[in-house]
């Protein structure tokens, strides 16, 4: 939620100084670090990690862009510079397992880093949440009730089509006892929010409509009270869309991590 964290987020440097190793590294990502809206999701991912007692750490100021937007824009040099620098840091800390708060970071580290010397087990935070639910460590109790609320989930391209992760985020929503409604274009046929391929950082090319408007219209057709997201870029595009459609009073755009935190009262 909007409150400050009531615990300290451990960094790799601190852990190593204490001679400890984390079970998992939380890769925050640039949006999760700097974007105000995405920071809320970042803190909620930490709340989940803290709550279940997993030994985790972040890189803090040692983290840098994975290079994803550079690569999608066609600048392979910059991408590989970023990748190799990051791999040096990660390998230096002997990292084995990574959870990311962003599907773009997830895809890049999981698929594109191994060829450059960075081999890690990489999961997206929705997969972590699903695992924790499966293990019984996370439930949906003690917090806000989502019972009967209409929730529609928007598949991020780099999680869904990009890496075939469709079920984990839905499982995380299923425990809520809410009413899950699918948009007409969902899962492998899901429509992009419009931010991928470095579009996040530029004005759209000429057309008769913005992609996020096309998507939000489809989402609103399901008459949801919550649109669930799993990506900070989708979060921006969908939130903007809901505002432009003047629906932000009735419809919330929330990350799966935020929903989980609310449901558990963390």
């Amino acid at each position: 939620m909007s409150e400050k964290l009531n615990f300290e987020v451990p960094t790799m440097a601190q852990l190593i100084a204490r001679g400890e190793e984390p079970e998992i590294l939380f890769w925050v990502g640039c949006a999760g670090s700097y974007d105000e809206r995405a920071q809320k999701t970042t803190r909620d991912i930490c709340r989940i990690l803290h709550h279940v007692g997993i030994k985790y750490a972040v890189l803090g100021t040692e983290e840098s862009c994975t290079g994803d937007p550079a690569k999608r824009a066609g600048n392979e040099f910059l991408f590989q510079m970023q990748a190799m620098t990051n791999i040096e840091v990660l390998n230096g800390y002997n990292i084995k397992k990574i959870v990311t708060g962003c599907p773009h970071c997830f895809n890049t580290i999981k698929n594109e880093y191994p060829g450059l010397g960075g081999d890690y087990e990489v999961i997206h935070h929705t997969q972590l949440i699903q695992q924790l639910i499966d293990e019984g460590k996370l439930k949906a109790e003690g917090g806000e009730s989502f019972k009967g609320k209409k929730i529609t989930y928007h598949d991020p391209c780099y999680l869904g089509r990009g890496n075939d992760v469709y079920e984990a985020p839905r499982k995380a929503l299923e425990v809520l006892d809410a009413q899950l409604v699918e948009m007409k274009r969902c899962k492998s046929n899901g429509l992009c929010c419009g931010a991928g391929g470095a579009q996040m950082f530029k004005e759209p090319e000429k057309g008769f409509k913005d992609i996020n408007i096309e998507r939000i219209e489809e989402a609103l057709e399901t008459q949801p009270s919550i649109i669930a997201a799993g990506c900070p870029f989708c979060m921006t595009m969908l939130s903007d869309g809901v505002k432009l459609k003047d629906q932000d009073q009735h419809v919330q755009v929330l990350d799966i991590a935020e929903i989980t935190v609310r449901a558990n009262g963390l």
Partner: peptide, 9 residues
Amino acid sequence: IWACTSCNA
């Protein structure tokens, strides 16, 4: 080419 979102649809 700059209109692509690399969404793989």
